[in-house]
């Protein structure tokens, strides 16, 4: 009995491990599922609509704000140097909070602590612009998030949230993005769900949008309760997705259908 129980448990674990990961050599960015027209729009900065936000972000980088009357540039100087590769490491562990922060969270922490300004609301034009400008400095660099040992429990939490079935349709992220990424959902490519290009311009939104916006859309799509903006659950999911995409090149600001 005991032995049978062990065998059953061992094979259940093996099954779970198998379903969990897309082999390294089969990982594909959402880019590779797109039409030639949409790829061309992402590739050419003169037509990529995301570049409008990047330009706004560059102006905001230099603008003084808050009671300390400092700009981002007053502390970090030239973003092309100081912010190179930074976004590829986010979400990152924040000691003061004992938990990870995503790039938006980090920008707002700098606003609060160093500029003494009010935090920018999620999905506001200014927060998207600053995030896009910082993320663009990592374009082409490999994603390296999730290595910090302090992040381990949060990566694991994100993985569990990715696997869990939820909502009225009772589906988990993994049911689509690990198990069915070569298929179509009502005509659109499901993709492997790698967060390589955020914030990105989505044709359906006719706007730039954050990774959290994308995750909330998938969660609402399965008719589950979307986690609040900035919630630990959304950040854990972002972290798991980034660690799952480790080594893939950053594309921000990408374009998606």
């Amino acid at each position: 009995m005991r032995l049978l129980g062990c065998i059953a448990l061992a094979s259940a674990l093996a099954g779970a491990a198998l379903a969990a990961e897309i082999p390294q050599d089969q990982r594909r960015s959402g880019y590779s599922f797109m039409s030639a027209d949409t790829k061309a729009m992402q590739d050419d900065d003169t037509v990529n609509p995301g570049m409008l936000w990047v330009l706004d972000g560059e102006a905001l980088w230099k603008r003084k704000a808050g009671t300390s009357d400092k700009s981002c540039a007053d502390c970090h100087y030239d973003a092309r140097v100081s912010m190179k590769g930074v976004a590829a490491h986010y979400p990152a562990y924040e000691k003061a909070f004992g938990r990870p922060l995503d790039l938006e969270g980090r920008i707002n922490l700098c606003r609060a602590n160093h500029q003494q300004a009010t935090p920018l609301p999620y999905e506001s034009r200014d927060l998207l612009a600053l995030t896009a400008y910082v993320a663009q400095q990592s374009r082409g660099m490999p994603i390296e998030a999730g290595d910090d040992p302090d992040l381990k429990p949060f990566v694991e939490q994100g993985r569990e949230l990715f696997m869990q079935r939820q909502g009225q349709l009772n589906l988990g992220c993994a049911n689509c993005h690990d198990d069915n990424w070569d298929k179509k959902l009502a005509g659109s490519a499901i993709t492997q769900g790698h967060p390589t290009g955020y914030p990105l311009y989505r044709l359906e939104w006719q706007s730039l949008g954050s990774l959290q916006r994308r995750l909330r859309a998938c969660i609402t799509g399965i008719r589950a309760q979307a986690y609040d903006w900035g919630s630990p659950e959304l950040v854990a999911l972002e972290l798991y997705l980034m660690s799952r995409a480790r080594g893939m090149p950053m594309e921000a600001p990408a374009v998606r259908p």
Partner: peptide
């Protein structure tokens, strides 16, 4: 992966607008 169209129990984190209703 096919949802249960006439079931309301045993589901996790159903969104407010759908809670307690079959699909």
């Amino acid at each position: 992966i096919m949802p249960s169209y006439y079931r309301v129990d045993g589901l996790n984190r159903v969104g407010r607008s759908w809670l307690g209703k079959p699909i």
